[in-house]
């Protein structure tokens, strides 16, 4: 008796002119699992994410969340239904404070966006929730700072904080630790592990660092030239010749 997958893509395809960036990718993701999506640069990993979260519209195929076809849904509609996304390139609200960035996410979840006549700061519960998330990613001391003045590593942390504050069923992380200092990486990895284990969320993770993948992933999906070329248990997938060749491009590294 298997549970229905949370998220499923079927023959998902997008063409840009003659170039097929994602080519008939069929894949499903179960609740409480963490899937690493790997592949060389230009393999279509981020494009695949964009198709799932709606920033790009598929040329063919479908995306289904909890069995509901969401292929034609807009980005905010998909967010409403439980798909959340952190971006590879930092993508924040630069003129606002760190706290305000997170507060806006919490406010969106509380569906207060069209509240015109109350004072935003008077919604204490939203501020408290925002501060709670900031404490989790260890950004609480920088809460008052304007985002554009924040160091790059902290901006990456805030990127993750926004996704945690959103708290969706499906979380997509696109190289969350890229550009972070060595001592901050474990903080983020621990958060991702907690999201999976304690909160039973489904996580998709694009990552290049093999040690990160080994320590977190239940499963690895390999994309190459837009096609799904391997899918399975991490140890097995890493050992596959096609992966060695296509992704790592070198002999297997020592664990």
């Amino acid at each position: 008796m298997t549970e229905r997958p949370i998220l499923e893509t079927r023959d998902l395809t997008i063409r840009f002119g003659g170039h097929v960036a994602v080519d008939h990718v069929s894949c499903s993701f179960d609740r409480g699992t963490l899937t690493a999506i790997v592949g060389p640069n230009g393999a279509g990993k981020t494009t695949y994410f964009n198709l799932i979260s709606g920033q790009l519209k598929a040329t063919g195929g479908t995306v289904a969340l909890n069995g509901e076809d969401i292929t034609r849904h807009s980005v905010p509609d998909r967010t409403d239904r439980g798909i959340g996304r952190a971006f590879q390139l930092t993508n924040l609200f630069p003129t606002l404070s760190v706290r305000e960035n997170v507060r806006l996410v919490v406010q969106s979840r509380a569906r207060k966006g069209f509240d015109l006549f109350s004072i935003a700061e008077s919604h204490i519960e939203l501020l408290e929730r925002a501060d709670h998330v900031l404490a989790e990613v260890r950004l609480i001391d920088q809460a008052e700072q304007i985002v554009s003045a924040l160091p790059h590593g902290d901006q990456r942390k805030l990127e993750v904080a926004l996704l945690i504050a959103l708290g969706p069923q499906v979380l997509m992380f696109d190289e969350p630790t890229a550009g972070m200092s060595v001592d901050e990486v474990p903080v983020i990895l621990e958060l991702i592990r907690k999201l999976k284990a304690d909160m039973d969320r489904t996580i998709l993770l694009v990552e290049h660092k093999m040690d990160v993948i080994r320590s977190l992933a239940d499963r690895i999906v390999v994309l190459h030239n837009g096609e799904l070329v391997a899918d399975g248990d991490p140890a097995e997938v890493i050992a596959l010749p096609v992966v060695q060749e296509a992704y790592l491009g070198k002999a297997p590294e020592a664990a």
């Binding site: 979260s53 967010t79 609200f93 969106s108 926004l162």
Partner: peptide, 8 residues
Amino acid sequence: FRAEAIGY
């Protein structure tokens, strides 16, 4: 772009 991605 990001405002849409957080549901607005």
